[in-house]
Design a protein around this nucleic acid. Structure first.
Lengths: 349, 349
DNA sequence: AATCAGACCGAAAACGTTTTCGGTAAATAA
DNA sequence: TTATTTACCGAAAACGTTTTCGGTCTGATT
């Protein structure tokens, strides 16, 4: 435990605290012999500076905060993992907080972080957040903030995003290229930007490949669950027996769909192809394994921290803060729930 | 941003900082009118006390640290979730760190936490940790510590555990009660206590039900992976075609086994029953769904924090710290990969 | 002998808060 | 009137560090 202080060391050696402090920090105006005496004693006593006192003077904590909607999610926990790993390299510790997709909680938790005087904040907006004053105020107060994943362009700060629209376009395009023509989309709750983006990517792909958009092929899952996917499958196949492809908003839904199709004796991918989104761990353990879009959470986390660090430095040096936007590329992970691309089409278009 | 200080408020109102401080904390020796004047101005200026300065005086940060081997695991992230939720109730923030199952990292990360002068630490030991001096020293230094999940009884502090042995006994017992007699066990790496406990629970169950223990029915998975489970299945069924039950150390292995059995055209549970451990999310999405042991991570986290809080209070009050051990009950989640218990046996024994 | 330059060290202020201990005035009691 | 309480407020120290600004020596230079 860090109990021994500069004062105690100085008393033992008959020096002043200033001298001891300077000796430990290798100031040039301290005699080498004195330095050695101080450093040796400090080592022997396991001296470590008191972090509060340092923070009080320097106005820096070397602690940052990250606020996510829900920690118990592979996507978010891997983002946090990326943040922690990157932060560690630069000596920063990370406080983790959750908003549970609640606007009130988001405000409350952010206030906790701000009140602790930590150095910076990274956050992913809750689904319910439609006003951004609480965040803009924090930024205007001088606190470096980085947004990731669920962001808003109304907030002027650095952001890390994946291009949901582009990824979703690719997913749909892949279904089309593998021969699907009646492609259903299971979307999520209305508000979040990701929902809209993935929906638009789907729609754009259809347009690009001259496939008529049919609104009745859009189904909605409110809680993004396995059960939703399972239950919607029966409804989908009853209303549209000709469906030959299903693009789900997120893997758990897609996995529910797989099970639903199996129960209906519908062959995947022979009769219906299924593609998910997010590359959850379990998507490679299903039967058949699930084709999906990979979002590299680690990379999002690492890049978010890098942006934050940049602004922490800019702030310290009095420079103007950046608001750059980093886009993390996604990739499509092709598995068994979709057909392979026929040779004649797989050439670049 | 918390910029306005007591001094500034005092200057505006023509008071001393002491008076302002006392007014805000409702000291009895301050005039009510003065209190109101101070509190109103403080509100108007959005005053929040400087956390460093408070910590410097009080020697309390209201921050605790948690160190887990790996955050990106449903089990650990749900523990952290439990900790954060419980900590929030009492105004504590949580710094999250990972050891990546490395002894050196464990030491390093713990030192970071100790040096930050946080109030307490909760940790789950890394697999590689066989010496405990680094932790014992921290405890002797006066830092409250709580161990959970991967613990050692050589460390004198509060602990939260699940009784792996009992749970494993139950899992094996369930297989026996549903008619299995040649039960294989896939165990984990040798060192960790959990490996041994689950192995012993398996063995005890066999003894209790007068089934001969056959060492050749024990298989080892080194990296606890889906692939290990898959690959071991072929070997197991080749060496012991009469196997009718498989108890895997952890769900991913069990799910690999399910896939392996399917590839070998072995019916589950008709020919072979399979039971996992940990109730990973995906275990309810497989075909067949997996019977497993549920470990309530949230409860572990919440209880761990409660123990820590108790010792934080004890420390503040100068009381002696407790070292109590809380055992979190597990439950068996019966799904499709095992047979139901026959009526005549299911009566209490 | 007087001056000057280093070399080395310490005093003190500052970061912002909390709390103890008086101190002054007014109000009450003697 | 004097003594004593009560009500209210402020000075100051403390938490532990960092850094500026002198200050005191020694030894060298005129």
């Amino acid at each position: 435990m860090s109990k021994v202080t500069l004062k105690e060391i100085s008393k033992i050696l008959g020096l002043s605290t200033s001298t001891v402090s300077k000796a430990l920090k290798d100031y040039p105006d301290i005699n080498d012999i004195t330095k050695i005496r101080v450093q040796e004693l400090a080592n022997r006593l396991n001296y470590t500076p008191n972090a509060f006192a340092q923070s009080l003077r320097s106005h820096e904590t070397k602690i940052i905060g990250i606020l996510v909607p829900d920690l118990v999610h592979h996507f978010f926990s891997s983002i946090i993992n990326g943040v922690i790993q990157e932060a560690e390299k630069y000596g920063y510790l990370v406080i983790v907080l959750q908003s549970h997709e609640s606007y009130e909680d988001e405000i409350k938790q952010l206030k906790l972080l701000v009140d602790k005087n930590i150095d910076g904040i990274m956050l992913s907006l809750s689904d319910k957040t439609v006003k951004y004053d609480h965040i803009i105020n924090i930024i205007n107060g001088g606190m470096p903030v980085v947004l990731f994943d669920k962001i808003s362009h109304l907030i002027d700060c650095p952001k890390v995003i994946i291009d949901d629209r582009k990824a979703s376009f690719r997913a749909t395009e892949y279904l089309i290229k593998t021969g699907c023509r009646r492609i259903a989309h299971i979307t999520g709750p209305l508000k979040p930007k990701t929902t809209i983006d993935r929906y638009m990517g789907y729609k754009n792909a259809l347009e690009t490949y001259d496939i008529a958009f049919d609104k009745s092929l859009i189904y909605t899952s409110d809680n993004l669950s396995f059960d939703d996917g399972y239950n919607l499958t029966a409804q989908m196949m009853a209303e549209h027996p000709t469906i030959d492809g299903i693009f789900a908003f997120i893997d758990p839904i897609a996995i529910g769909v797989l099970k639903g199709l199996k129960d209906q004796k519908i062959k995947v991918p022979k009769q219906v192809s299924v593609i998910g989104f997010s590359n959850w761990f379990m998507s490679r353990t299903t039967t058949p394994t699930l084709t999906t879009i990979n979002q590299p959470g680690d990379e999002i986390g690492k890049n978010a921290f890098k942006l934050l660090l940049k602004n922490l430095n800019h702030k310290r040096e009095g420079k103007v803060l950046t608001s750059e936007i980093v886009e993390i590329p996604t990739s499509i992970v092709i598995r068994e729930s979709t057909k392979p691309i026929p040779i004649e089409i797989s050439a670049p278009i």
